[in-house]
Amino acid sequence: MAVVTAKASDLSQIAKRVAGYAALIFFALLFIMPFILTIVTSFKTLPDIQQNPVQLWADPDMGWTLDGIRGLDTSNVRLPRWAFNSFVVTTTVVIGRVFLDSLAGFALAKMKFRGQQVMFASVVMLLAVPGVVLLIPKFLIMKQLGILNSYTGLILPLMFDAFGIFLMKQFFEQLPNEMLEAAAIDGASTWQTFTKVMLPLARPGLIALTILSIQGVWNDFMHPLIAVPGNPDLATLPLGLANIRAAFGNAQPWNTILAGTIIATIPIAIVFFAFQRYFVQGVAGSGTKG
C-alpha cells in the first residue's frame, strides 16, 4: 500500500515537472521566436520572404543573401551614420549622468545643508513627471538655447535625470557613516572622501546606473525626434529606423529593415548579457523599493 502511494506521488511529481517545463518552454518560444525569425529573415531574399514569411530557413532555390545588410548603407538609409550618432550620444550622456548623479546623490545622502530636504522632495516629484508632457517646452527651450539640430541638443537635456539622482542617493545611503567619520578623522577632504572612499564602495550602484542609462538612452526615440527634426545627419538608430519604411516605396525590403533592427539590438544585447545581474537587480530594486 505504502509502495503504491509512493509511486503515485512520484508520478504526480513527474507530471508536475513536465507541465512546468512545458509552460516555461512555451513562453520562452513566445518571447524569443520573433527575434530568431528576424535574424533569419534578414538573410533571406525578398521573394523568399514574400512566399515563406515564417520559415526559419532560406528556400534552397533562392538561397541566403547579404542584400539585406547591403541595403542599410544607401543614400537615404544611412545606418552607419545613425549607429555612430547613437554611440556618441549614449556614451556622452551616460558619462555625464554618472558624474552628475553620483555627486548629487552623495550630497543628498551624506551631507547636511540648507535646502537639502526640499531638493530631494523636488527630485522625487520630478521623477513622476511623464516625459511626453514636456515635449513642447523642451523643444522651445532648446530653440531658445540655440541647440536644436545639434549634438548638444541631442545630448545635454538627457544628462539631467531625476531617477539617477534618486538611485544614487539610495545607494550612498546604504553605506555606513563610520566610513565618512574615519575618512574625516584621517584628514581627508570632502572631495577625497567622495572619490577615494565612497565612489569605490558605491560601485554596484554606479554599474546599475550606467547600464540602465545605456539602455534608456540607446533606445530613446522621443527626445531625438524633437531635438533634431531638421537634420537627418544627426538621426540616432531609433529615429532613423522609425522613418525607414517611409524611405522605401510600396515594396518594403524587409530583409534590410529587419537587419537594421538587429543592428540596433546587438549592442544592448551585449551589455545585457555581460551585466545581466545588475539589470535584474536594478529592475527588482525599483519594484521592492517603490
Binding site: 552628475l100 548623479d101 555627486l103 548629487a104 552623495f106 550630497a107 543628498l108 551631507m111 547636511k112 545643508f113 540648507r114 535646502g115 537639502q116 531638493m119 523636488s122 527630485v123 520630478l126 513627471v129 508632457v133 514636456l134 513642447i136 517646452p137 523642451k138 522651445l140 527651450i141 545635454l156 537635456p157 544628462m159 539631467f160 531625476a162 539622482i165 570632502t190 567622495f194
Partner: peptide
C-alpha cells in the same frame, strides 16, 4: 557642508530646473 552640498548638487539641479521643472510650468 552647507556650501559644498550646494556645489555638489548644483550642476544636476540646474539642469533639472531648465529641462524638467521650467518645462512643466511652460506647458
Amino acid at each position: 557642508d552647507n556650501f559644498l552640498g550646494l556645489v555638489f548638487t548644483a550642476p544636476a539641479m540646474i539642469g533639472l530646473v531648465i529641462f524638467v521643472a521650467i518645462p512643466i510650468l511652460l506647458t
